[in-house]
Design a protein around this nucleic acid. Structure first.
Length: 1050
RNA sequence: GGGCGUUUAGCUCAGUUGGCUAGAGCAUCUCGUUUACACCGAGAGGGUCGGGGGUUCGAGUCCCUCAACGCCCA
């Protein structure tokens, strides 16, 4: 009986339950680690640093299994590094997730109170979002801790907190000063519901049924021979109100030639099934060329001649222009140009210097530019425009057609291309730096195939629109005043410069000339000359106030959420302050994330890290798989197939969740995780289907009772108990936890009387040496696998070793030795030593159970070791990572042991096929070469425990008993004496099968050896095959002989 | 349309540079409560490696092609 200081109770191995009470242990152990300061990175430490920054989860909601995977992998890595003696820091935090969070809170506001954000006002809405954030952040951090994440929680950051805010402002100021940030009018994706710009990444396109409308635009004063109308086609008739031109192709003949030659290329490559269709297209094109080319050339000439068209409904003359955007192979070959509402038309307008007319208000209704259509929604306007054109007999034809409609991922409403003032980051130089970092291998991406997407995306060097018309985010630190005339500009700038507090480190000035657009000219008599923008550093409130007194107003927009995320690796360490943390932990070591944000986040972190700190933010990036459900669909709450990690933890435990996650994490592919409902009444689990996963309540097929799901809304449904959504795939891991727990329980029960002492090499038995050899190999492999992010390989190796080698063989064999007083002390030391190593190897993946066992082990054998005995670390979390002596790796011993394993497995198979009860002891002989006999000799006694079989003869002289079952391996013949027991038919059947197998194998080997080219090319391999052929032939002879004998008894 | 990935046992996945009878877990079947563990132990059955073609002495593995599925970018 030993006092246990942790529990202030008496530790008795007999009291250890046969199952690990993970629910109780997890919280207790996590608190112990946290209060012990084990998670803390120390910037003063002399140890080499190892840093990981968490991909900050969005505060929009709870974590899902993808997060569980992501954080398991990070924690596994950081725990191994901690044990390897690094000064580790895993930096935690959450992301404010701008539009996503604001959209969630706004939706709730609308649903619960019927209010919009404008009813509430900026300050009140932001306060509400902060409230939401506090709630969800607490939940998210709680989830991360439940998973076991060993982050340095005292350093938890939030992308919108003061420290990150300072970094954002500093960065913005720096880029502004370098003129890498500028303001301009651009066509943006406008979400009319949220009334904000959304980035390209937040837009997805949906294919819907629509129409393709053809209109006639009259030619103004056509010359003789010229058409009276041109026909244009569109899927969006209402946009014609903003048309400022119609384009035709400048070289229709060459354009048609190019299309034709592309088709011919395609024809060469296409399969038989496709050929007919491509040929038909070519013919149609040729016919079209015949028919249309003169007309297209005429239109081109009209355009060059400056001919104008009359835009119906608007009474506006618009030019006919030449531009390559027009497609001579389609329709009438003319395309209407709406620069302010279509990305392609916008480009045309820039090339042809066309006016741009904005016809939309921010809420998606039409503005005053559209005259009588003003105030209508797009949908209403479409109907009216079509009707009005029809009434004027300008509607030509209408075709049905599938169209791609851009949708906002945030509001799920249609996106309108919209011309707006936006702030941009110029990407040319910044992108190049991030490209170079990867090309020069300063940042390595694993798996390597993801490099390409990263490089391609950065290679486009598209400027980054960073302003968002939101209230939740970092407000852009720019104050602006518009100057009506040139004369005002310099005095204003002078005045700003002479303000108290102005200096170049605190404020920067940009002048933005106003772009002339046709629209501006017509709506305002006098065009303002320019805008003066002043960007202000943080901590200059007085200066800001002074600017406002001068009549400058602060930009209302906030920054894209990725702007602050891009700074995460250095902002969290305190940059721009030169903190000890920054000096110690930057650049960080490894980033572990998912592939969908390689460009959005990873690439931007690299370029911002280089810009701000002059060094890459991390050396390695590991991209992990994505988790899908059993149908290959991504998991999400909105589909009903999302699994809450906490449900998995509640049912299987955090270690099982983690082991299961790591076990799934293979390099090549995404993983499918079939999803089940678990009945809260009878714990029966059954597969989710696409049908039942969207129901508010489900009937359990086991107990026939109903339970509710996440969709329950009615009072009646909500009153039902809620069923969890889980996956049975974690059972394997849970069973493994149990196995480990019981193996260690066995150890505690048998370590009574343990006396610490160095292990004497003389006392090592064959099985000890085998265990040491395996342990050495496994620890080397696991280390290498984890360093290379091969999590699945590492867990497979550990599972196989712990279960099928350590438990099934080594522990079983120890039982005999524990029974022998003289062998007991050495056996105990070996058990303590090998279990100790195994626990360390498993700790990164399964931290809780290994810590619990470690501390229990300390109760029975606090002092352990090999050649030197020392008191084990108090906690396994910072125990040293196992480094075993390479000389222990002994293939000869492993081969010797596998002889025993092969014989054992044949014995067991005979017992089973002959249906011999466990309690019936059998006698058997092994006929083999003398050296094989010598190798088996020391292990011979273990056949008794492991197969209830007594080895009566071993070696070349052994003979088959009169009535026996026979098995052969490459090196041995095994005869089990079955006098009075034998099931002859079963044995005949078994032997015949074996005979067929051997014959198959022999003929395949003979075929190979008779192949002269093979023997010449691979002599070594041929020799091996010769040896194994001889063995197989000898086996066949034995089997045939036995078969003959036994058949005679039938 | 472009790029990447996947297709191996009923399910989820391994399978190094081509080389002996293609492996594991779960599920199925048989036997078993031998005191660490029934969340256990022993054993068995189950695969023309998506289809076709090629290179090779030899292809799950390399090449071409067709098909299906998934993801990313336009």
């Amino acid at each position: 009986m030993i006092q246990d200081p942790r529990r202030m109770t008496t530790f008795n191995p007999n009291d250890i339950p046969s199952r690990f009470d993970f629910a109780e242990a997890q919280n207790r152990i996590f608190k112990m680690w946290e209060s012990g300061g084990y998670f803390e990175g120390n910037p003063e430490s002399k140890k080499p640093p190892y840093t990981v920054v968490i991909p900050p989860p969005n505060v929009t909601g709870a974590l899902h299994l993808g997060h569980a995977l992501n954080n398991t992998l990070q924690d596994t890595l950081i725990r191994m590094k901690r044990m390897q003696g690094f000064n580790t820091l895993w930096m935690p935090g959450t992301d404010h997730a701008g539009i996503a969070t604001q959209a969630v809170v706004e939706r709730r506001l609308k649903e619960d109170e019927g209010k919009t954000r404008h009813d509430l006002g900026r300050e009140a809405l932001v306060a509400r979002i902060w409230n939401w954030k506090e709630q969800y952040e607490a939940r998210i951090l709680g989830q991360l801790k439940q998973i076991g994440s060993s982050c340095d929680w005292n350093r938890t950051r939030f992308t919108l907190d003061e420290v990150c805010g300072r970094a954002v402002r500093h960065t913005f100021f720096d880029l502004f000063q370098k003129s890498l940030i500028y303001r301009g009018k651009r066509l943006v994706n406008w979400d009319t519901y949220l009334q904000t710009t959304v980035s390209d990444d937040e837009v997805f396109s949906k294919t819907v049924k629509g129409q393709f409308w053809h209109f006639k635009y009259a030619v103004v004063d056509p010359k003789p021979g010229e058409p009276e109308y041109v026909i244009v086609a569109t899927t969006r008739p209402e946009t014609m109100l903003g048309d400022t031109a119609v384009a035709v192709h400048p070289e229709p003949d060459r354009a048609l030639d190019r299309v034709a030659s592309e088709l011919r290329e395609k024809l060469k490559k296409s399969s038989d099934s496709e050929k007919a269709s491509v040929e038909a297209q070519l013919e149609a094109l040729a016919a079209r060329r015949e028919l249309m080319l003169p007309k297209l050339e005429q239109l081109r000439d009209m355009a060059s001649d400056g001919r104008k068209l009359s835009l119906p409904l608007m009474d506006r003359e618009i030019p006919l222009v030449c531009d390559v955007w027009a497609k001579p192979e389609l329709g009438a070959g003319c395309v209407k140009i709406t620069p302010a509402h279509d990305p392609n038309d916008y480009e045309v307008a820039k090339r042809c210097d066309l006016p741009m007319i904005n016809i939309m208000n921010r809420d998606g209704t039409l503005n005053v530019e559209t005259g009588v259509y003003s105030g209508l929604t797009m949908k209403q306007a479409r109907k009216k425009v079509v009707e009005d054109l029809d009434a004027l007999q300008l509607l030509d034809t209408v075709e049905d057609r599938e169209i791609e409609l851009p949708q906002s991922d945030r509001s799920k409403t249609a996106i309108e291309p919209y011309l707006a003032d936006q702030w941009f980051v110029a990407m040319s130089e910044l992108s190049q730096s991030a490209i170079d970092a990867v090309v020069e291998d300063k940042v390595s991406i694993t798996p390597k195939r993801y490099e390409r997407g990263y490089l391609d995306w950065l290679g486009e060097k598209r400027d980054w629109p960073v302003s968002r018309q939101l209230w939740w985010g970092h407000q852009i630190p720019v104050w602006t005043k518009t100057c009506e005339s040139e004369a005002e500009v310099q005095p204003l700038i002078d005045a700003i410069h002479s303000l108290s507090g102005f200096d170049e480190t605190a404020a920067a000035v940009q002048l933005e000339p106003c772009e002339e657009t046709d629209s501006d000219k017509r709506t305002k008599l006098e065009l303002p000359f320019a805008s003066v923008h002043v960007c202000v550093q943080s901590g200059c409130e007085d200066f800001e106030n002074a600017l406002e007194e001068m009549g400058l107003t602060r930009e209302e927009d906030v920054l894209d959420t990725w702007f602050s995320s891009a700074l995460w690796p250095h902002s969290t360490l305190g940059w721009p302050e030169q903190t000890p943390e920054l000096a110690c932990f930057y650049p960080t070591s490894t980033l572990i994330t998912s592939r969908d944000i390689i460009s959005l986040w990873v690439a931007r972190m690299v370029l911002m890290g280089l810009n701000n700190c002059g060094e890459v933010p991390f050396e390695k990036v590991y991209i992990h798989p994505k988790i899908q459900d059993g149908f290959g669909e991504t998991m999400s709450k909105s589909k009903g197939n999302g699994i809450d990690p906490l449900d998995v933890i509640a049912k299987f435990g955090a270690d099982a969740l983690r082991f299961g996650m790591a076990h799934l994490c293979t390099e090549t592919q995404d993983v499918r995780l079939p999803v089940q409902f678990e009945c809260p009444h009878c714990q029966h689990s059954f597969d989710q289907t696409k049908k039942n996963r969207i129901l508010p309540k489900v009937t359990c097929p086991g107990c026939k009772k109903e339970f509710s799901t996440q969709w329950a809304e009615s009072e009646e449904d909500k009153a039902l108990e809620k069923g969890a959504v889980i996956s049975e795939r974690f059972e394997t891991a849970r069973n493994f936890v149990n196995k480990l727990w019981n193996a260690s329980r066995f150890a505690m029960l048998n370590l009574e009387g343990y006396e610490a002492s160095p292990i004497s090499e003389e006392d090592l038995t064959v099985e000890d040496r085998w265990m040491l050899s395996r342990l050495t190999t496994v620890s080397g492999n696991v280390t290498a696998y984890l360093e290379d992010f091969k999590y699945a390989d590492a867990t497979r190796e550990l599972y196989e070793f712990a279960w099928h080698q350590f438990c099934s063989f080594y522990v079983e064999m120890l039982k005999d030795r524990f029974a022998d007083e003289s062998k007991r002390p050495h056996a105990q030391r070996m058990l303590a030593y090998s279990l100790d190593c195994l626990l360390r190897l498993l700790h990164p993946v399964m931290p809780f159970i290994t810590e619990e066992i470690w501390q229990n082990l300390a109760q029975v054998c606090p002092e352990r070791g090999w050649s030197e005995v020392a008191t084990a670390n108090r906690c396994i979390i910072d125990a040293a990572w196992p480094e075993l002596k390479p000389v222990w790796r002994d293939l000869a011993i492993e081969n010797q042991f596998s002889l025993y394993q092969a014989a054992l497995s044949d014995l067991r198979e005979i017992r089973n096929s002959q249906n011999i009860g466990n309690k019936k002891k059998v006698k058997f002989s092994i006929k083999c070469a003398a050296d094989i006999g010598e190798q088996l000799q020391p292990l011979g006694s273990y056949f008794s425990r492991m197969a209830n079989a007594e080895l009566v003869a071993l070696g070349p002289a052994a003979v088959a008993p009169e009535t026996s079952a026979t098995r052969t391996t490459a090196e041995m013949e095994i005869y089990v004496d079955l006098d009075g027991l034998i099931d002859i038919k079963a044995e005949v059947k078994r032997l015949e099968k074996e005979k067929v197998n051997l014959e198959k194998s022999i003929s395949s080997k003979q075929r190979q050896l008779s192949n002269e080219k093979f023997v010449a090319a691979k002599p070594d391999l041929a020799n091996e095959i010769r040896t194994s052929l001889a063995q197989a032939e000898s086996q066949l002879a034995t089997i045939s002989d036995s078969l003959q004998k036994i058949t005679a008894k039938l």
